[in-house]
Every structure is written in structure tokens, then in C-alpha cells.
Amino acid sequence: MIQKRPFFITFLAPAVLTAVILAAAIFEVLQYSVREFVPGSLNVGGLTLENFARINRPIYWWVLADTFFISLLTAVFSLLASYPVAYALVRAKKDWVRSALVSLSITPLFTGEIVRTFSWMLTLGTDGFINSMLRKLGLIDMPIQLMYTRFGVVVALVQFSMPVMIILLATAIAHVDRDCERAAANLGASPSAVFWRVTLPLTLPGILSGIVVVFAWTMSAFSTPQLIGGGKILMISNLAYLQGFSVLNLPFAATLSLIALVCALGSLALMKTITGRIERRLAVN
């Protein structure tokens, strides 16, 4: 007998409504991207493919490549920084150590992106925390340029993405069968060999999904590169913003947004294929 679920439609309604609005918004972006730009007006002209043709210029390709590059760097460094934290978070013997690590790694999620970016500006600036510390220690005479550099942007993005990476990695580490690690030790593997030969390979699915999520997330980063990059480091969202709200060329901003969306989805699909293949080969799941 099929159970009737009278509330099913009602419960689904908010999700459906959200999906419809999102689809409409994306369609609107799509619609704008094929419109003519009328200089000096927010109204758009007739249908054209000129916006897409305009993309084919080195400056735009460069921004796109830089976006990929920064996202990849962020994903890799976020992984390297998060793995030890996640490992300690799962494996710490003392309860208070675990709770302390959980709060330390999750709390940043609840401070807004702007607040966090501003803190990084205070830290990275020429009179910021790092430079004044180094100067007081006598290690440098002239401040190091950290603001408005790719390095500064990546550092802030890494910190921004770490909570998510830590959660994904901790889940993977918690799922490792401790008996497998004991078996490895029993067979003569030293603690470091146990980690490299057993624990790390068994957490590979978590590592891969962490990289994919952080990569895709960073692709759409806006305020961090906007404020710390200060126009010198442009990611695709910053370029779209520039076109849309400084030049007021809404059709071209729409085209850039669309390209950003396609790139994000495309790289997600690509990474999903690669990670799927690796996971099948390891047969971890």
C-alpha cells in the first residue's frame, strides 16, 4: 500500500519556489548577455553576439586563467593547512582539545566575509601586524608588499575556506577503520608508515571532495580579491563587477558572469570525473 503524504507538496513548495526564482535569474543573465550595450544608458539594445566576441582578448583570458590559478592554489594550500587540524580534531584523546579545535575551526564561518577580509587587510598592510612585527624584530627595514598581491589574496582565501575543508577532512578521517591502522602496525608499519600507507589513502575521497568544493567556492570569490587584491588582482567576479557597476555595461557583465558559471560547472564536472576515476581505482568506497 502506498502511503499518502498529504504535506509533501507543501513541504516542497519553498524549495520549488527558490529553484524557480534562481532559474529565472539565470535566464535573465543569459538574456542580458546577448543584448547590445547602449553607452550611457542602463537600457539594452537588440540581440547580438558581440559580447561573446569581445571576450576573446588577452586581458580577459588572463583574468580567467588567474581565477583558475588562484582557486587551485587556494584549494591545495587549504588542504595542506587543514589536514593536520582535522586529524588532531578527530584523533585528540582529550575531550577539551577536541572541543577547542572544533570551535576554533568552525567559528570563522560565523564571522562575515567582509569582517574577515578586513582583519586580513589589517594583518597584511604595510603598517599591518606582520610588517610591524618583522620590523620590530629587526628582520626587515622596508615593509614587504603583501596587500594587493596574489600571495595576500591566496592567504586570505585559504583561511576563508579552511572551515569547510576541515569539516570534509574530519568526516573522512573519522571514517577510517582503526582496525586497518592497527593491522598495519601489527604487520610492522611504523606510525609514519601507517599514516602514509593506510590513513592517507583511506581519506583520499575526503581530500578530493575538499579540493573540489574549495576550488569551486573560490572560483566565485568576490570581496576577498576585491579588497585585498585592490584592483591589481582581478578574479572573474571582480571583472564582472567592474563592467557592471563601474562601466555600467550590464550586457558584458552578464556575459562574464555566464562564463564564470560555465567555467565553475565545467571544472566541477572535470574534477568529479577525475576524482571518480581515482576513487574507483582505490576502491575505497
Binding site: 593491522a183 604487520l187 611504523s190 589513502p201
Partner: peptide
């Protein structure tokens, strides 16, 4: 890992990311 004592676990604890050969070879490689 210095004890040279073999053990079969209740769950077997075979390494899921290795094939049969590599599971058996693990201790010798270590």
C-alpha cells in the same frame, strides 16, 4: 610494530585500497 606478532582481526581489517597481493605483501614490504 616491533613485536613480530601476527594478528587476524574480527573484522579482518584488510586494506580496502589494495588488492589481495598487496595486502599479503604489506608486512614483508614493511
Amino acid at each position: 610494530y616491533r613485536r613480530d606478532i601476527g594478528m587476524v582481526f574480527q573484522s579482518y581489517a584488510l586494506f580496502p585500497h589494495m588488492n589481495v597481493h598487496d595486502n599479503i605483501a604489506f608486512g614483508l614490504r614493511m
